[in-house]
Amino acid sequence: MPPSGRTDAGALPPAAIALMLLLSAVWGLNMVAVKVTSAGIPPVLQAGLRSTLAALIVPLLCRPLGLRFGDWRRGGTLAAGVLAGALFAVEFIALYIGLSLTTASRAVIFLYGAPFWVALGTHYLVPGDRLTRAKAIGLCIAFGGLVLAFADGLRAPVGPDALLGDLLCLVGGALWAATTVLVKASSLRRAPAALVLQYQLIVSAPLLLLASPLLGEAWVIDPQPLVVGAFLYQAAGIAGASYLAWFWLVSRHSASRLAAFSVLTPVFGVLAGALLLGESLGVGFLLAVMLVALGLWLVNRPAG
């Protein structure tokens, strides 16, 4: 039985759906933030510095919210926490290398196959979070809407290493899913969300900072105000507040239903790009959003 206050089975309550919509919008804007920050900080170094700063910020966020950390020396969470942090680091390394080899549209499609991996993992490893027919159909429809939203970009010419880039982005999505399933299927499920997040930040920070020079990145930072602002948004808003909220949700609700909402993230990213960077929207974008919404409704229908 899940601990008191945790309701893993059944459809997501309205409050959880509202929070996931907010998180998807925040993560969608993060795509723009990463792009802006990359103009002044190399990507893997950026991820390492983000984890480092977020690890310092999270305790400051927890105090006013009354969130506790628990004791990492008890509860048997250390091994699972270290593994989660390692998965988190390798996910970003695979994603950033993949992005450099393939197009952004193709990267999005392969990365956001993650909800399928989460649904399969929880089906076999997490009691009460089964992959029903309605959930499977909903995931397919939502993913179809995502493909439609990026259809124009998928037709763009690609380089000779695009297939390798696609594969790395697929691996990144699978590792993202593996981390989510690990949190639900291991002792981390009983740990406070703040402790789960700190494991990932503290373990991933040195791994990412070590990987940066090994991947040939020059540690040269151009601290333009826009770059610094976008980086702080990532560290405090994304790796700090939003991930803390995400792990709080994962500890209490169906991981597969929550993960399905992540397909909205690139949709919000497109909208953010249109509003902030002046990027154009494809003709089928509205239809794509409708398909995603329909798919999410099917995923979140109560099992009957």
Results as ranks from 00 to 15, higher is better:
residue 169 C to N: 15
residue 38 S to Q: 12
residue 254 S to A: 14
residue 80 A to T: 01
residue 134 A to V: 10
residue 288 A to I: 07
residue 189 R to P: 03
residue 261 F to M: 11
residue 183 V to L: 13
residue 201 L to P: 00
residue 147 V to E: 07
residue 249 L to N: 02
residue 178 A to S: 15
residue 144 G to F: 07
residue 85 G to C: 04
residue 4 S to Y: 03
residue 150 F to M: 08
residue 280 S to A: 13
residue 155 R to W: 03
residue 295 G to S: 00
residue 302 P to E: 15
residue 54 A to P: 02
residue 54 A to G: 11
residue 276 L to E: 11
residue 236 A to L: 14
residue 223 P to I: 14
residue 55 A to C: 09
residue 160 P to C: 08
residue 223 P to Q: 13
residue 34 V to C: 10
residue 7 T to W: 05
residue 171 V to S: 04
residue 267 V to W: 00
residue 36 V to H: 02
residue 229 G to T: 09
residue 268 F to V: 02
residue 144 G to L: 12
residue 81 G to K: 01
residue 76 G to C: 08
residue 208 L to T: 01
residue 125 L to S: 09
residue 186 S to I: 11
residue 52 T to H: 07
residue 171 V to W: 02
residue 35 K to Y: 13
residue 45 L to V: 03
residue 5 G to Q: 05
residue 206 P to V: 09
residue 299 V to S: 02
residue 176 W to Q: 00
residue 197 L to Y: 02
residue 3 P to S: 11
residue 83 L to N: 06
residue 288 A to C: 07
residue 213 P to Y: 05
residue 202 I to Q: 09
residue 61 L to S: 00
residue 4 S to A: 14
residue 82 V to N: 11
residue 285 F to K: 02
residue 292 V to I: 15
residue 31 M to Y: 14
residue 56 L to G: 15
residue 95 L to M: 12
residue 272 A to M: 07
residue 279 E to M: 04
residue 58 V to A: 05
residue 243 Y to A: 04
residue 60 L to Q: 11
residue 124 Y to N: 03
residue 5 G to E: 05
residue 83 L to M: 13
residue 93 I to F: 09
residue 194 A to Q: 04
residue 262 S to K: 03
residue 197 L to K: 04
residue 18 A to E: 06
residue 228 V to Y: 06
residue 62 C to G: 05
residue 68 R to S: 14
residue 62 C to M: 10
residue 271 L to V: 14
residue 62 C to L: 03
residue 120 L to P: 05
residue 79 A to G: 14
residue 300 N to F: 01
residue 46 Q to I: 05
residue 295 G to D: 00
residue 121 G to M: 08
residue 190 R to I: 03
residue 15 A to H: 06
residue 87 L to E: 05
residue 214 L to C: 08
residue 278 G to K: 10
residue 215 L to P: 04
residue 117 W to S: 11
residue 39 A to D: 14
residue 30 N to V: 00
residue 55 A to H: 01
residue 10 G to R: 08
residue 161 D to T: 15
residue 221 I to L: 14
